[in-house]
């Protein structure tokens, strides 16, 4: 039994350590919802560094701190064959000041996100076509009392997104340029932390998201991201999100992203600007 386990361990280890067929930073960081990507948006790339026939995987932890609120996320993702990615993330949104001010029955909101991403065609760097992936995210809100009180219609929902990514060699004054664009079909309120659908609007919206980054060398990236959000609840507005980030990829096992995020109005509190820090380990 022990022998079998250790053999299995060896086998796994050799699989994992083989999986570095892609170039540094092309596994991206981990987005807030667990899929490989930037910070607030997914990219078409798959987690880890596995190429054809190889596995890739990552684990990550992210914190966003706006002063009034705090969001903590932790998760894992695994991909195979540079084709399919499965991910899981748990988000915990600390209501901080809002819970105190309004005497809310709970002081945090959590949700689970199960993700699937499929590379449809293309390649990040080499093919004629950019890499295009289709993603699904199944989200389950875990503390539905507050969302239901403010008008959310559902506790769980599934949303889809289409994402295209391309790295243009030397595309930014000689430095490599990464372009990402996506469309999301969703009715999640504040990612789903405030449930799905609302008293104002209970249909899916088509939402645009995207990012641009410049890689100053294989280890450092500087970029901006943007994500459109729906506005389904009448008790408060929901703002589109944007951020400015620096990504550091010292090697194929570690990525660190630091960002300044402008999250606008969240659950009636305005001007939620904050700091975003994410650390990812990949195999």
């Amino acid at each position: 039994m022990m022998r079998m386990l250790s053999l299995l361990g060896l086998g796994l280890f050799s699989c994992l350590s083989l999986a570095d067929g892609r170039l540094l930073a092309t596994g991206g960081a981990s987005s807030l919802e667990g899929a490989a990507g930037g910070g607030i948006t997914p990219w078409a790339v798959l987690s880890g560094y596995g190429e054809r026939g190889e596995w890739g995987a990552d684990v990550f932890a992210t914190r966003v701190e706006t002063g009034d609120y705090r969001l903590d996320v932790a998760g894992v993702a695994a991909s195979f064959d540079n084709r399919i990615e499965l991910s899981y993330a748990r988000q915990r949104f600390d209501l901080g000041n809002l819970a105190r001010n309004l005497n809310l029955p709970e002081n945090s909101l959590s949700q689970d996100i199960f993700g699937l991403k499929l590379r449809l065609f293309g390649d990040l760097i080499y093919d004629r076509l950019p890499q295009v992936s289709l993603g699904l995210q199944h989200k389950r809100q875990r503390d539905f009392l507050i969302p239901s009180l403010v008008g959310a219609q559902r506790r769980k929902d599934t949303e889809g997104y289409l994402s295209a990514s391309r790295l243009i060699l030397g595309g930014a004054f000689g430095y490599n340029l990464l372009l990402n664009g996506g469309l999301r079909y969703s009715r999640a309120n504040e990612l789903g932390l405030l449930g799905f659908g609302g008293d104002r609007r209970d249909r899916h919206s088509v939402l645009k998201e995207g990012s641009i980054a410049v890689l100053f060398n294989p280890h450092w990236a500087l970029g901006v991201e943007y994500r459109e959000k729906p506005d389904n609840l009448s008790f408060a507005g929901e703002s589109d999100w944007a951020d400015l980030f620096v990504g550091y990829f010292p090697n194929k096992h570690l990525a660190v992203v630091l960002a300044y995020a402008r999250l606008g109005e969240i659950a009636s509190l305005e001007n939620q600007d904050g700091v975003y820090l994410s650390i990812q380990g990949s195999f």
């Binding site: 067929g21 892609r22 190429e51 054809r52 540079n82």
Partner: peptide, 11 residues
Amino acid sequence: LTPSDFNALVE
């Protein structure tokens, strides 16, 4: 040669 071989040479 595989895509991984190619990237290894690029690195």
